[in-house]
Amino acid sequence: MSSFPPMRTNDAKVFGRVAVLMGGTSSEREVSLDSGRNVLEALQSRGVDAHAVDGIPALVDALVHGKFDRVFNILHGNKGGGEDGVLQGLLDALEVPYTGSGVLGCALSMDKIRTKQVWMSAGLPTPRFERLAVGADVRAAALRLGLPVFVKPSSEGSSVGVARVVDEPGIDEAIRVATQYGGEMLMEQMVVGDELTVPVLGDVALPSIRIVPKQGWYDYNAKYLADDTQYLCPGLEGAQEDAIRALALDAFRAAGCSGWGRVDVMRDRNGALQLLEVNTAPGMTSHSLVPKSARTVGVEFDELCWRILEQTLGARA
């Protein structure tokens, strides 16, 4: 795969005043605050004039008063978060550079169902699924797909609101989750095999990570709270590693994404790869995966944050 290009600049002054946007009001607020604090510390350690901003209203107020020159977006989620394209459209209108994907990539990839539809149209592999509109017959959909399945909100992240259904009694839990979230849900065939993720930085797919929870599956607890989840990087070897990284780049671009992000992939017991989703503002916590992968190719956390911020220099692709 491609190697890293040299950094564009070593002068922190070219960035001007940087807003590190974090927190917000989405269901992922606490993860975003944790990520934001880490990014802020890393940028400041390299001399960047970076400042924390909690949520979009505070950012708008600061930008209207000319307080910032660019935005490092680490606001997770939708509905008050920074990954659904609304923030990106606002910043485009204000002509303020920002990190990560633009309007199209954020809006599309936040919607898991429509991302999968795009991948299918491009001939990229993804598990079979059903769209569950409000009031849909969850039991009938599960039986059509065949158990086991996952049921999850179409537009949430960080494993928020995910139900794992392995038998018919478990369908009742899926119905409860669907009722709780109220919006459109995705029911997806569960792929039994290895769970992997591939970070993307610019035009480079970083080494994959194979995720091995000590028990159960990779839920919110295993992602952010547990200390016994194993992360194997690279997750695959040789031609298989090349294949998953190439697939991740294809999936990332097909979804209209740019800048940086993370593509989640399953490998079934026959070795076939299946795309799950794209995250356009991945976590940057102590448990997060993009920094783990970058570190294996010699890019430490502070350099990673610098390289992401560098993407705001020049015209957006």
Rank of each mutant, 00 (worst) to 15 (best):
I244N: 02
L247D: 04
A248V: 05
D250K: 14
A251D: 03
F252Y: 07
F252M: 01
F252V: 05
R253Y: 13
A254T: 07
G256P: 10
S258W: 15
S258V: 13
W260E: 13
W260T: 06
G261H: 04
G261T: 04
R262K: 03
V263D: 04
D264M: 12
D264T: 01
D264G: 05
V265Q: 01
M266C: 04
R267F: 12
R267E: 10
D268W: 13
D268N: 15
D268F: 14
D268Y: 14
R269H: 14
R269Q: 13
N270M: 13
N270T: 14
N270E: 14
A272V: 11
A272P: 08
L273D: 05
L276S: 02
V278Y: 13
V278K: 04
V278T: 05
V278I: 12
T280P: 01
A281F: 15
G283H: 10
G283F: 08
G283I: 07
G283R: 04
T285Y: 15
T285S: 09
H287A: 13
H287S: 10
S288R: 07
L289A: 09
L289D: 13
L289M: 15
P291D: 15
K292G: 02
K292Q: 10
K292F: 01
A294Q: 03
T296E: 12
T296S: 12
V297A: 05
G298N: 07
F301C: 03
F301R: 00
D302E: 12
E303V: 08
E303R: 08
L304R: 01
